[in-house]
């Protein structure tokens, strides 16, 4: 790993100032970034740790009943503390392994937008709002393709607001070596319709399966999507699975998620 300067500000304002310099990059829990630095795939001049900012840590329930999670909150804290949104807490408790969950943060996961990460499915499936130091971004506008988001240079995710659905479930088909999702589906049923977000499958990263959403909004049951299929085109193909296999998994895992959410 190439050397870099290290800074650990205590407030969002200080962090934004520290990130304004050339070649500076934010560091969440580092569970992806540090391995990336070790491989010399990335060589920032300065890392600005966000883990010392108290106002960015913790879970609470907002006035409208939404679950609000600070951007620097580790997965383990969400797993234990987001009881008001059980499907979200369960998802956080399935990321990586226990030691990874004690370091990795929701802001880091969403900023990285790994195509097989779990949190993007929760944010998109819930219609969450990603709050940064500068603005609020709807999840539908935030995810812009594999490892690509609406975040500007130096912009920090300070919190994420999740509306709580009537019923929801995240079904994860684990790739056991990496513990990422080979395919994962987050299904959320709201009063005005159902959202279905798929991670791990598409070369474009997390996406909404809108055909399934329409069918499930009519009838919230696994059989409702019997007649639907996902095209293999654009699905990820690697040594763990072909595009055809992943396209098939999307449907199977969606049905399991609906059944568990019922």
């Amino acid at each position: 790993m190439y050397d870099f300067e290290f800074e650990k500000p205590g407030s969002i304002a200080e962090a934004v100032a520290a990130l304004s310099g050339e070649d500076a990059q934010a560091l969440g829990g580092g569970q992806t970034l540090i391995p990336t630095l070790k491989q010399r795939l990335n060589a920032p001049g300065k890392l600005v740790s966000l883990t010392g900012i108290a106002e960015m840590r913790g879970v609470c329930v907002g006035d409208g009943g939404e679950v609000i999670i600070g951007g620097a909150t580790p997965h383990a804290v969400v797993a234990a503390g987001a009881g008001a949104y059980p499907a979200l807490a369960a998802l956080a408790g399935q990321i990586g392994d226990p030691a990874v969950r004690n370091r990795g943060t929701i802001g880091g996961s969403l900023a990285n937008n790994d195509p097989a990460a779990c949190y993007p499915a929760a944010a998109l499936g819930s219609g969450a709002v990603i709050v940064t130091n500068a603005r609020e971004i709807a999840a539908d506008d935030y995810f812009q393709g594999m490892f690509t988001t609406a975040l500007e240079e130096g912009e920090i995710i300070t919190e994420v607001r999740f509306p709580v659905p009537q019923a929801a479930h995240y079904e994860k088909f684990v790739q056991p070596a990496s513990r990422f999702a080979l395919t994962g589906v987050f299904v959320a049923r709201f009063a005005d319709g159902v959202r279905v977000a798929v991670t791990g499958a598409s070369e474009e990263g997390v996406f909404r399966w809108t055909d399934a959403e329409a069918a499930l909004s009519e009838t919230f049951a696994p059989e409702a999507i019997d007649g639907l299929n996902v095209a293999a085109e654009g699905m990820i193909g690697d040594l763990h699975g072909t595009p055809d296999y992943r396209a098939h998994l999307v449907k199977v895992i969606t049905k399991r998620a609906v059944k568990a959410a019922q």
Binding site: F6, K8, I34, P35, S49, A99, V100, A177
Partner: peptide
Amino acid sequence: SQCGACVVHVDGVAVKSCTMLAAE
């Protein structure tokens, strides 16, 4: 950060010490 041989406790919780900066 796959194998866990480097697990230590930092402020009471288990972490993989090969995937945490000493400065942190």
